[in-house]
């Protein structure tokens, strides 16, 4: 189909107001190190909020899994993914590394599945019990070897699910 003049894209070169105000050349390493230290030292007890997000997720999951139709619309997926995304994002920001990693795996699972079939529900149920347990006992810090082993098993379970239910693969988290 031929493009009409109305369909043509107009290219605009706006003036870079920010650059005009701040100049160019970056920030000294010293400043960047200070900012990094501020972030590393920043602490916040994220667990009450994480628990609240988990409750939201469980409620959504219960509601969706009680429906006769097990398929997942984009809106239903978003409703499930949002509380887990909040856990992943904020756990990472406040240095709860294992919690972040497990939430990221759940997010990947939710992105991958297109229905709440029995296998998907089994996988999500187990992931959520793990997440619940971590929230009950977590504190900020790096992942222990035990935590790493756990993540390895979760990833392997996701791979088994993908083999059993192949489809076009979403981007890896």
């Amino acid at each position: 189909m031929k493009k009409t003049p109305k369909d043509k894209a107009k290219i605009i070169k706006p003036s870079n107001r920010l650059s005009l105000k701040v100049g160019k050349g970056g920030l000294p390493k010293k400043i960047l190190n200070q900012a990094e230290k501020i972030q590393n030292d920043f602490s916040f007890d994220f667990m009450p909020m994480a628990y609240s997000e988990l409750v939201t997720f469980k409620t959504q999951l219960k509601e969706l899994s009680s429906r006769e139709d097990s398929s997942l619309s984009d809106a239903a997926k978003d409703a499930l993914m949002t509380p887990i995304m909040m856990i992943k994002a904020n756990a990472g920001m406040f240095h709860y590394d294992l919690l972040r990693e497990v939430a990221e795996d759940i997010l990947y699972t939710l992105d991958y599945i297109d229905s709440l079939n029995t296998d998907a529900l089994d996988l999500i149920d187990l992931q959520v019990r793990i997440l619940n347990h971590i929230i009950d006992h977590a504190r900020p810090g790096k992942i222990t070897p035990n935590g790493l082993e756990l993540i390895k098993e979760i990833d392997a379970a996701i791979d088994r699910y993908r083999k059993k239910h192949p489809q076009s693969t979403p981007d890896a988290p």
Binding site: R129, H133, E153, A157
Partner: peptide, 27 residues
């Protein structure tokens, strides 16, 4: 300083159990 769990054996025991359960899922 790997500290993603409180000390004590109970949480780690549960963690191990959950790990085994994950291993057995979707054979």
């Amino acid at each position: 300083d790997a500290t993603d769990f409180y000390g004590g054996s109970e949480p780690q025991d549960i963690l191990s159990r959950l790990r085994q359960e994950t291993k057995d899922l979707l054979p």
